[in-house]
């Protein structure tokens, strides 16, 4: 199923190096962040839902920049790079709204790069691999610090421990309002379900903050 639906989308190979221009119909672009440690499935999820090939850029952090914190961990390097993957998805028949998904490692030492990328995001999906949940803790801390609405999505890996939601919530010390979702980032439908869970929550938060 997932393969059949991906074939019907525009062929990313059609213009491998052409710029990803915005159609003139686009009026609103919305950013969501996909956060989590290395190897938890951020790029997989972005690719499973994106209509364009996912792009990536490398942010270079050099000594003369203000990103001194990145050097504290690697004192002998004069620069380091952090990769950001992103993809986009056109929503609605009119094509007015485009959803962008940005994946960033969200390590504390790349805090500034993370905040730069996440600026203006309406929500974050924190991906979790239950075989090694600790790799996503730093990302979760950054997301919490940023104050944006977020949901936690457990990505289903082969060999993942089968834990009930209450146990996972307790282990991750989730706020009662923070949605806990389960997904398989390889599958488009499942990834879209996770995004629906996140956006529903974001909408609740924004509605409450806006007030009647």
């Amino acid at each position: 199923m997932a393969f059949a639906s991906s074939r019907s989308r525009p062929d990313p190979a059609a213009a491998p190096d052409g710029p990803a221009y915005l159609p003139s119909s686009v009026r609103n672009m919305v950013k969501l962040v996909v956060a989590g440690g290395l190897g938890v499935g951020k790029t997989t999820l972005i690719r499973s839902v994106s209509e364009t090939r996912s792009l990536h850029t490398e942010e270079v952090m050099t000594a003369p920049s203000s990103r001194v914190d990145s050097l504290a961990f690697t004192p002998r390097k004069t620069h380091t790079t952090v990769t950001m993957d992103f993809g986009r998805l056109t929503l609605g028949e009119s094509g007015e709204t485009v959803l962008y998904l940005f994946g960033t490692p969200g390590q504390a030492r790349f805090r500034q790069a993370w905040l730069d990328t996440a600026y203006g995001a309406r929500g974050a999906l924190v991906l979790m691999d239950l075989r090694r949940p600790e790799v996503s803790y730093e990302a979760m801390d950054l997301v919490e610090e940023s104050g944006m609405p977020y949901a936690v999505a457990v990505n289903d890996f082969p060999g993942s421990p089968v834990l009930d939601a209450a146990t996972v919530r307790a282990d991750l010390d989730l706020h009662p309002e923070t949605p806990l979702l389960f997904c398989n980032a390889l599958e488009r439908e499942s990834s879209i379900d996770a995004l629906i869970g996140l956006v529903s929550h974001s909408l609740d938060v924004y509605r409450r903050n806006t007030g009647p």
């Binding site: 609103n28 919305v30 929503l91 609605g92 709204t97 439908e189 629906i196 529903s200 974001s202 924004y206």
Partner: peptide
């Protein structure tokens, strides 16, 4: 600027659009 709509309307559009993606063609 990336978006013309206020946050709530923007997110309503996104939610609606994502839900429509799930409907079988």
């Amino acid at each position: 600027e990336p978006a013309e709509l206020p946050d709530v309307e923007l997110l309503e559009n996104v939610l609606d659009g994502l839900r429509k993606l799930k409907k079988p063609a």
